[in-house]
Design a protein around this nucleic acid. Structure first.
Length: 499
RNA sequence: GGUCCUGUGGCCGAGUGGCUAGGCAGAGGUCUGCAAAACCUUGUACGGCGGUUCGAAUCCGCCCGGGACCUCCA
């Protein structure tokens, strides 16, 4: 357990594996990013936060990490009713905007939301539309190697042919024979030799606005090729970590593997990582179910299912409290709990940040608790990124910090251990888990702070004179804006957004 | 229908063949003019039925419930 090496669950192997990067000291990771045809919703937040924490942790471990997260701004079908119309094109028509205008608008919105969640920007954020050439070149290679065929100006991946040389379905545990029976009729099916074949390039129908020239037709790339082409370009034909939601396991990631093997003859990814999905009040989130919550709606509280606005950090915390491979159920109660719990750890952070060692004795138990804190957190992260245990460790030490704070003495701990612990707590809170401390007095603005302090002076005067009616009246007024904490000698306060 | 995951105390949510998860809520107490905050104490849970084992909530089988994917989806 304390062997202090990172183990991650590899979907390909279906077990935890020791993480060893291809090139010592360097890590290449790729995450399937958003399709920018609509507002970012709760579902976008999960992989973004999950792999943000991984990115941060790998960096903390000393790796030089290149993190690539794409923006999908071409292709992708909506559903049967849309007859294969390009998502982005459809939206553009509805809003009478240029497709790239829509892309820009939602890309900026996505970035804004990610910023609110304190998700770090990736090292490279490539766009599918900017890598048409790379995709065409990759398709050509696949054709050359005999794993794809041209049909009516479109190019399809030949799964049957591919299966003669490589296994297909390993990642998702699919057996092609079973899939045959369960495949539905889709647009363009007649052009395919086999229902399992998937498009690498699609000829654009006349009403398609977004299309590019290619050796086969004016058209657009297939649904899966962009990730293969862009990950290979920036991370190499084989790289370390590929992440995404479990829903992308099949067909998306399966197809990525097939394409890369077909083009380069190499397994593209060494560790496949998949975050689980989320539900709303126990139900799958989906537009048709009317429980689809965008991040803007969550942060503003403007959604019929929400009782109040929830802060980005409440959401982030909520996700960190669960393991990334478990489903998370969102509810007002769950978010309320997360908000309170987060606020508690945030208070501890703020107290600790400005605390200096001034102890006189060493208590074995306190010393032990605080000295093992850092290693306990590292062990938890090393165990397939168990952020829930990290948070649990943080709660365990919160009592110690509160006692230090109320007593004004860091009693029971050696200076060395205290410094190490303080540093570890702050590092894990902000740098690794990526939490931003709650708005403190200092951040509320000087004037606001002065006003509160002045009122508290009056209240303390009143208290001295035992005029509790006045003192309580002031407290009642203030409690609409801040939370007061009376201690023996002074009253501290915390700015909090009230319901 | 096929493939796979899952069922933990009031709620959320880790974990796991014998040793404390944690949070929220609740109860009692300390402090306090009162309250809040903080601190102390308190809960003996692992869907059901069998099996393996010295020992299972943890492994196996069956049953029941929930979910995901198989079609764009994070």
């Amino acid at each position: 357990m304390t062997d202090s090496k990172l183990y991650i669950y590899n979907t390909l192997k279906r077990e935890r594996e020791l993480f060893e990067p291809l090139h010592p000291g360097f890590v290449g990771m790729y995450l399937c990013g958003p399709t920018v045809y609509g507002d970012a919703h709760l579902g976008h937040a999960r992989p973004a936060v999950t792999f943000d924490v991984l990115f941060r942790y790998l960096t903390y471990l000393g790796y030089k990490v290149r993190y690539v997260r794409n923006i999908t701004d071409v292709g992708h079908l909506v559903n049967d009713a849309d007859e294969g119309e390009d998502k982005i094109q459809k939206k553009a028509r509805l809003e009478h905007l240029e497709p790239m205008e829509v892309v820009q608008q939602y890309t900026l919105a996505y970035h804004r939301n990610m910023g609110q969640l304190n998700v770090k920007p990736p090292s490279i954020e490539p766009r599918a539309s900017g890598h048409i050439i790379e995709q065409v070149l990759m398709i050509e290679k696949i054709i050359e190697h005999g794993y794809a065929y041209i049909s009516e100006g479109s190019v399809y991946f030949d799964v049957k042919r591919f299966e003669k040389d490589y296994p297909y379905g390993e990642l998702s545990g699919r057996v092609t024979e079973d899939l045959q029976h369960n495949t539905r009729e889709l647009d363009g099916q007649s052009e395919k030799r086999n229902p399992l074949d998937f498009a690498l390039w699609k000829k654009a129908s006349p009403e398609h606005i977004m299309h590019w020239p290619s050796p086969w037709s004016e058209g657009f790339p297939g649904w899966h090729i962009e990730c293969s082409a862009m990950s290979a370009k920036y991370l190499g034909e084989t790289f370390d970590i590929h992440g995404g939601g479990m829903d992308l396991l099949f067909p998306h990631h399966e197809c990525e593997i097939a394409q890369s093997l077909g083009a380069n003859g190499k397994q593209p990814v060494r560790y496949w990582m998949h975050n689980n999905m989320l539900t709303i009040n126990g139900q799958k989130m989906g537009k048709s179910l009317n429980n689809f919550i965008t991040l803007d709606e969550l942060f503003s509280g403007k959604h019929s299912l929400l009782e109040k606005p929830y802060s980005p950090m409440a959401l982030r915390f909520c996700m960190l409290q669960a393991h990334y491979r478990s489903t998370i159920d969102f509810s007002n109660k769950g978010l309320d709990d997360a908000e309170k719990a987060y606020s508690k750890l945030s208070d501890i952070y703020l107290l600790l940040k400005d605390m200096n060692w001034n102890g006189t004795t060493v208590n074995l138990e306190v010393e032990k608790t605080l000295s093992s804190f850092e290693q306990d957190c590292i062990d938890a992260m090393n165990d397939d990124m168990n952020t829930a245990i990290v948070l649990s460790n943080m709660f365990k030490v919160s009592t110690n910090v509160n006692i230090f704070s109320t007593s004004g003495k860091t009693e029971g701990v050696s200076k060395e251990t205290f410094e190490k612990f303080k540093n570890a707590y702050c590092t894990f809170f902000t740098d690794i888990l990526g939490l931003v401390p709650n708005e403190s007095a200092a951040q509320s603005g000087e004037e606001f702070g002065n006003l509160v302090d002045s009122l508290l002076e009056v209240r303390n005067e009143a208290k001295k004179k035992k005029d509790f009616t006045l003192a309580d009246a002031i407290r009642n007024v203030l409690s609409k804006f801040v939370t007061l904490k009376d201690s023996a000698d002074k009253t501290s306060w915390k700015h909090e957004k009230k319901k």
